[in-house]
Amino acid sequence: MRLLLPCLLLMLGGCAQVQPWERGYLSHDVMAWDVDPMKARLDRHIYASKEGSSGGGQAAGGGCGCN
């Protein structure tokens, strides 16, 4: 039942109780949100500089007059 609220928030079904010792897969390197954080940071800079939109996944940080 404790999982009901977040599942509803996400409008998703199928949430399961996952014990701490069952979370090995979730902590694998292949499951990281960013495959390589340092490179991902550079990629975000580049896309924000070369496209008309930016943001998502985090607060924006500093401005840029990139062209």
Partner: peptide, 13 residues
């Protein structure tokens, strides 16, 4: 490129 766009990216790592 840009400045400091990743200030809050620690969670993403």
């Amino acid at each position: 490129l840009s400045t400091l766009a990743a200030l809050s990216s620690a969670a993403a790592a």
